[in-house]
Amino acid sequence: MSLTTIAVIAALKVIVFLGAVLTGCAWATWLERKLVGHFQHRMGPSYAGPYGLLQPIADAIKLIFKEDFMPDGAEKIMYTLAPMIAFIPALLSFAVIPFGDEVTIMGQQIDLVISDLNIGILFIFAVTSLGVYGIVLAGWSSGSKYSLLGGIRSSAQMISYEIAYGLSIIGVILVAGTLSMKELVVQQASFFDWFIFRQPVGFVLFVICAIAETNRAPFDLPEAESELVAGYHTEYSSMKFAMFFIGEYANMIAVACIATTIFLGGWQGPLFPPVVWFAIKVFLFMCFYVWLRATLPRFRYDQLMNFGWKALFPLALLNTMVTALLKTIG
């Protein structure tokens, strides 16, 4: 392959994957509203198009034409930068997620991952740990009490859960002996090799911490509407608000992709092509997210902190120790 071909293929991959993810984000909002609607015996969005399927497009048009408002007391530069800082790390993590096996298109062997780094998992943790800055800065720069409280809550919450989040996958890394996402998928070829069976505690920890990291119900304290209006994005409107919104859904999809890759066998599966299996698993995980939101009430703040530090963190340490012991013994 010549250098030009490699560059063109890489560029195409980035465009196609980002397009797929952003489209997925738009229709994830539809999925959430529809599912929550049915959970609560409502219809959900149903006017725009069949089954309300065109609702995301209507929403997008509405958001673009809304007034872009900036409060008087805001720190202007950071107020503008914050949504971007929240939005970009959410998309970066998709760079190392393998969406499928190698395919041959027009005589070219193409790997369905943008970049198979040998420290793939660490890369994901590095970029997702930066997402908190967007929220914190949005809260700080808005010049509003509610926003500030939302931002402070968010930073405390993310610091607390990030430790257990990182530790939850150490078990998998110990068992697999690799940090490459692609290699992890290859090791889960048969059903019972999936890391969800080999690291069940790790999986439960991962899911709980991931929900806290993405600020989703029941851990959505930073935007608790009953006490903080809307938390860190109270003062935001128009496309700046939309960037927070899309960023949150991109983070959810990223977590679903990571869980699929690390614990649920990635693109492995019988009959259907790998990409289809990957999409099915991610879709089911997203439904699980929405299901949790519709079922569980929000935690109180001190409960959230106690749970993170006194339950999840020791459990994650214990899981790491036991896994390391078992690995050393045999």
Partner: peptide, 26 residues
């Protein structure tokens, strides 16, 4: 040195400076 680069981001940018920011905001 991919690993050291990733650690620099995870530990310093992702954890320690978030704490700094937290204290400044608090």
């Amino acid at each position: 040195a991919l690993f050291i680069g990733a650690l620099l981001i995870i530990v310093y940018a992702g954890a320690i400076l978030v704490l700094f920011l937290f204290v400044i905001m608090l």
